[in-house]
Simulated assay, not measured.
Amino acid sequence: MPPYADAIASFWKGRLAGGSGAVERPAISHLLRNASMPLDLGRTRTQAASLAAQIRGDGRQLLLLPGLLASEHRMEPMRAILEAAGYRAHGWGMGRNFGPRADTLEQIDRRVDEIRRSSGGAVTLIGWSLGGLFAREYAKFARAKVGGVVTMGTPFSGDPRANHAWRIYQLVSGFPVDRPPFTCRREEKPSVPTAALWSRRDGVIMPDCARGRSGERDHAIEVDCTHMGFAVAPEGILAVGHALETMRG
């Protein structure tokens, strides 16, 4: 049994018991549609060459940060397509994302420095869900090293409990969802170009929380996919390519 199975069981026990407070969350029907991830992944594998041809890479260094309980393996199809399109895309090298730790930003900083040793230029961060929160906070932590931030279904705006993931986050990380172990100003926009990908069909995160408000991000790009689809569906990968174009200098 995977190490996070108990956390997931506790999460669903809490859901069936009636939830917490009056915070609005996505409809359960949308949440269940995330089960289409294997089909989305199959479409991406079949269309990989075509997807790469539709993205105009420019050699920029990219760092991909996975979501809660995901490893960089989950983002490998996106990384491979971005590489084939002409970007230099890298995994984060930190294993499975079990939530924030006191030294998370320092660990990302070491990975960014490794990437920069081969180019000397800034690194653009692409973060899925919780990985997007890490990306935004790291861009404030090390502004000179970051060329831009793309978030995918990341709840950087509004109530941190307006989603179906916050209980799992707390169980896995051991920290309250509104008190991570490092300085975090979720709604404050990093002083680098930012693009927020969001979906009405997300199912895990409330769309408004991932879209953000004016002043919290530079661009908001709607994507027709589920929350899991941001990382593996053709629509999610093409949207990342579009977001990177908005940051092209």
Rank of each mutant, 00 (worst) to 15 (best):
residue 94 M to P: 11
residue 70 A to C: 09
residue 116 R to T: 00
residue 114 E to N: 12
residue 107 Q to Y: 03
residue 111 R to N: 06
residue 101 R to P: 01
residue 33 R to F: 03
residue 55 I to H: 15
residue 84 A to P: 13
residue 143 R to T: 05
residue 115 I to M: 03
residue 88 R to C: 06
residue 59 G to H: 12
residue 22 A to V: 11
residue 118 S to K: 15
residue 114 E to G: 10
residue 38 P to F: 00
residue 51 L to M: 08
residue 104 T to I: 13
residue 82 L to Q: 02
residue 42 G to P: 04
residue 27 A to K: 12
residue 147 G to C: 01
residue 100 P to S: 11
residue 80 A to D: 09
residue 27 A to G: 13
residue 97 N to A: 14
residue 102 A to W: 09
residue 111 R to P: 01
residue 76 E to T: 13
residue 157 S to M: 12
residue 30 H to S: 05
residue 156 F to S: 03
residue 111 R to C: 00
residue 70 A to P: 01
residue 64 L to C: 14
residue 94 M to T: 10
residue 102 A to M: 13
residue 143 R to M: 07
residue 101 R to M: 07
residue 98 F to Q: 12
residue 38 P to C: 01
residue 150 V to F: 01
residue 75 M to D: 07
residue 38 P to Q: 02
residue 37 M to S: 08
residue 79 R to G: 03
residue 97 N to T: 15
residue 16 L to R: 15
residue 75 M to Q: 02
residue 44 T to P: 02
residue 116 R to H: 03
residue 107 Q to E: 15
residue 125 L to G: 03
residue 93 G to V: 10
residue 70 A to T: 06
residue 86 G to P: 05
residue 82 L to E: 00
residue 141 F to Y: 14
residue 61 Q to V: 01
residue 156 F to N: 00
residue 13 K to A: 14
residue 21 G to R: 13
residue 76 E to F: 06
residue 98 F to M: 07
residue 80 A to Y: 00
residue 13 K to C: 05
residue 68 L to K: 04
residue 27 A to W: 03
residue 100 P to T: 05
residue 75 M to I: 09
residue 116 R to L: 08
residue 138 Y to W: 05
residue 56 R to S: 15
residue 102 A to D: 14
residue 32 L to W: 08
residue 66 P to E: 02
residue 95 G to C: 15
residue 74 R to E: 04
residue 141 F to R: 12
residue 81 I to L: 02
residue 25 R to A: 09
residue 89 A to G: 08
residue 27 A to C: 07
residue 135 A to F: 05
residue 147 G to F: 00
residue 128 W to G: 02
residue 84 A to T: 14
residue 28 I to G: 02
residue 61 Q to N: 11
residue 68 L to C: 08
residue 122 A to M: 05
residue 99 G to K: 12
residue 86 G to K: 14
residue 124 T to N: 06
residue 19 G to T: 13
residue 35 A to R: 15
residue 147 G to E: 00
residue 121 G to A: 14
residue 59 G to R: 15
residue 72 E to V: 02
residue 42 G to Q: 11
residue 82 L to A: 10
residue 69 L to M: 14
residue 147 G to T: 01
residue 77 P to V: 02
residue 118 S to H: 15
residue 73 H to C: 06
residue 158 G to Q: 02
residue 60 R to I: 00
